[in-house]
Amino acid sequence: MNASRTKPGSGGAKERIAEFFELPRDSILDVPRIVVVGNAELVIENHLGIIEYASSHVTVATAKGNVTVRGNDLAISSITKTLIGIRGTIEHLDLSLSPG
């Protein structure tokens, strides 16, 4: 939010609306929502599919870039159009997302 204030007009119309009405961004934008439960469970909402899946790492595509989860014995507990659930021992979460 600070970023958008210092650089007005950097986001699109949707983002400005979201900011104006103080709405959660993930409900309007395609920003991924990531929920981590301890180090054993992780859920990514608003994903765009799996790019790479191995037991040591899972890379998930989102509208803002890739999310990479690293760990051991990673398994995909469920996958639907809206969310991906990942189970296993999560050690590292890499959010190389584009700003905004």
């Binding site: 799996i50 790479e52 899946y53 398994a75 995909i76 996958i79 639907t80």
Partner: peptide, 24 residues
């Protein structure tokens, strides 16, 4: 490219769960 298969499956409405990597 097993990942392609996973993506294709969920986009066409096939539910997959408890996916586990066996080997490469």
């Amino acid at each position: 490219a097993v990942e392609d298969f996973i993506n294709e499956a969920y986009t066409s409405g096939v539910e997959l769960w408890n996916l586990q990597r066996i080997d490469e």
